[in-house]
């Protein structure tokens, strides 16, 4: 009973903190929206930065999407790049055949990826732990072999796509905004799930599946549904990414490394936290870019990124957000859980 007056006192404080947090996040998002426009006013060429940022946005979306299954429910998928590929091929094919812009077909590509995730999840989510991980790797290999030999989709050489028809100083704009909006929607979805009954159930599943089931949670349904949602955003990202690159090949999407990237970002930032994948994506792409510019595209840049990852995990075993929260040092601006 003594807890009532205390929480009543805390309430206004919490609310004002929340308000300032929201306004800071809102401001950041606003600046991100305005940033490309400065290129139109000033003579600076920002295309390199736009490229880097839209790449980060894309991975924020993909890692956050992965986190819905891999973080909340605890099912590690190394095969999420299959949804990336499916989204890319679906929209590219429609662009070449009927001339539909991938920006319009991307949401549909997401649903195609989602349908595939439903199907795959129905089969593979019966097993857990290492068996599940291996089944997702197998999925990548199956799709790689299939696409390499699918002549209609260009086989191993892939497909060449038409360039988007815009002047060079604006050519990255649609992709920048597309990826930014995708990242915002994905993180928001992840946030909503984290604070819903569905998210609570997924977290229960990650802790103890028998207990979750006995508590009344339809665990199979939850897992498959989570898998499907987490496939969706990766599919949408794939659709835009193919168009951006102006060509697609199986090897762009279906390297084990691409799937592993999402996992590593989540682990680095904090698996199962809302902000973790965001932080993880920024740091990982940021450091990789730094080493690339310092040492060029050599083994050194991979080594450097790996060393940073190892060092961070040594000090933040539960990822940056996860570990900071545990010791009560997480800045309020990153506390979205």
């Amino acid at each position: 009973m003594t807890s009532v007056p205390v929480s009543a006192q805390e309430q206004p404080l919490v609310r004002s903190k929340l308000k300032s947090k929201h306004s800071i996040l809102g401001l950041i998002i606003l600046l991100l929206f305005l940033f490309p426009l400065t290129q139109l006013i000033t003579a600076n060429n920002l295309n390199y930065y736009l490229h880097l940022m839209l790449f980060i946005f894309m991975y924020i979306a993909m890692a956050s999407s992965w986190n819905i299954l891999g973080g909340y429910a605890g099912y590690i998928s190394l095969g999420h790049n299959v949804f990336f590929a499916v989204g890319g091929y679906f929209s590219s094919y429609l662009l070449l055949r009927d001339g539909y812009s991938p920006f319009f077909t991307a949401p549909i590509a997401g649903f195609v990826a989602m349908a595939l995730a439903f199907l795959v999840g129905f089969i593979t989510l019966r097993v857990r732990g290492p068996a599940f991980i291996i089944s997702t790797i197998a999925l990548v290999l199956v799709f790689r072999i299939r696409l390499d030999n699918w002549e209609r989709l260009g086989g191993a050489n892939g497909l060449k796509l038409p360039l988007i028809d815009l002047p060079v100083e604006q050519i990255k704009f649609p992709f920048y905004y597309g990826m930014l909006i995708l990242a915002i929607i994905t993180v928001y979805t992840s946030y909503r799930i984290r604070h819903s009954k569905f998210g609570l159930g997924l977290r229960a599943i990650s802790q103890n599946e028998t207990k979750a089931e006995a508590s009344g949670i339809p665990t199979s349904f939850y897992k498959i549904f989570a898998f499907a949602i987490s496939g969706y955003f990766v599919g949408v990202a794939g659709a835009m990414w193919g168009y951006y690159l102006t060509y697609i090949t199986p090897s762009i999407f279906l390297l084990i490394l691409v799937g592993a990237q999402m996992v590593l970002m989540c682990i680095l930032g904090g698996r199962g936290t809302v902000a973790g994948p965001v932080i993880g994506a920024i740091i990982m792409i940021g450091t990789n870019e730094f080493f690339l510019s310092e040492f060029g595209s050599s083994e050194l840049n991979i080594f450097g990124t790996g060393a940073i990852l190892a060092a961070v995990l040594l000090f933040f075993p539960e990822g940056i957000v996860g570990s900071l929260r545990k010791i009560g040092r997480l800045p309020a601006i990153l506390d979205w859980d």
Partner: peptide, 13 residues
């Protein structure tokens, strides 16, 4: 109890 599909996205507690 969650209350079926409709309860899925209501607040966790």
């Amino acid at each position: 109890p969650v209350g079926g599909m409709r309860g899925l996205f209501r607040p966790d507690i």
